[in-house]
Computed example of a mutant assay.
Amino acid sequence: MKKDTEGYIPVTGGNVYYRMTGNGLGIPLLVLHGGPGGMSRESDPLRMLGDDRPVIYYDQLGCGNSDRPDDLSLWTVERYVEELEQVRQALGLEEVHILGHSWGTMLAAAYLLKQPSGVKSVIFSSSCLNARMWERDQRNYLKELPQETQEIIELSEQQNTTDSDAYQDAMIQFYERHVCRTLPWPQELLDNMKKTNHTIYGYMWGASEFTVTGTLQDFDVTNRLNEIKIPSLFTCGRFDEATPKTTEYYASLVSESELYVFENSSHMPGVEEPQAYADKIRDFVNRQY
């Protein structure tokens, strides 16, 4: 596999960092990271697919190694959709497979509903396609935590003290059940979480995973998923924030869809079951074009 290609692409509002792995002859796979406000992972197991096809990551504007402008007007689904198209154009991705993870599935769905040309398949990895359903599912998980932990989370959010040590400790209990069950967490994951752009996360999402108060609070594309007519794979972990039940519901709304659950994972099967995750995505895209 040849050395990665890295660079920057001018988009509306600034420049975004991208990295391309591999020189396989297949149609490239473009990865949309989670968040909002997250970043791509240097050790993402999908890089193993580079022998089959180029695998391309980019840090969305305001995230990771990309520019971080201080302009709230930039943090809209519409601008991120525009940015995705600008990345495709800059890299000459006339044909492409798209994989979105978490918030990246919201972005992928919004993009696909514009009926762009050349997208051969889509992978919705740990999807959130209805913000209120996501909030409901996390609230149900919250009820499974110790009563004391529930009270700390509720009180901290009511009193706007979510930067307290008690709240952070309570959230770790949730994260270790439903975000990443591989303990201790890999250092790269810890480092990346520290780099999260909390301004974007708070503005677009809200206080926490189970309190949606941002601009995405009414995001819901479930009534339009039937407009997606390309091969689609929906994946999640057995203990995922994106619950198997909700993920199965989303998949039922897309005509050419498949569903797969990683039995030993929560929200990050790429960390928790890296080989199985890479193998499943490889199998799916290799069966397309």
Rank of each mutant, 00 (worst) to 15 (best):
D279L: 01
W75E: 01
V285D: 09
D163A: 12
P184G: 14
Y175E: 03
N160D: 14
D218T: 07
A166W: 07
T161R: 13
W134H: 00
Q89M: 13
G26I: 04
G64V: 00
S73K: 12
Y18V: 05
P186I: 01
I98F: 05
P116H: 11
W75Q: 03
K143H: 15
L74C: 15
R47E: 14
G118W: 14
W205E: 08
P36W: 04
E135V: 04
G202C: 07
D191C: 08
R88F: 02
G237Y: 06
Y167P: 03
Y250L: 02
E83H: 09
D44M: 12
Q187E: 15
K194D: 09
I228A: 00
P69I: 05
R53A: 08
S126P: 03
E151C: 05
A108W: 03
G100T: 10
G13I: 10
Q115V: 13
S255I: 03
Y80I: 07
V119E: 03
E248C: 07
V122T: 04
G64P: 01
D169E: 12
D67I: 12
P184K: 02
Y249M: 02
S232R: 00
N197W: 02
Y80R: 11
Q159N: 06
I153M: 05
D59E: 12
K195S: 10
R139E: 05
Q89Y: 11
V31E: 09
G206Y: 05
L91T: 03
T243E: 08
H33Q: 07
N223P: 05
G270H: 08
D51H: 12
V96C: 14
G270F: 10
E258F: 10
L30S: 04
L142A: 08
W103I: 10
L25K: 13
Q168R: 13
C236N: 04
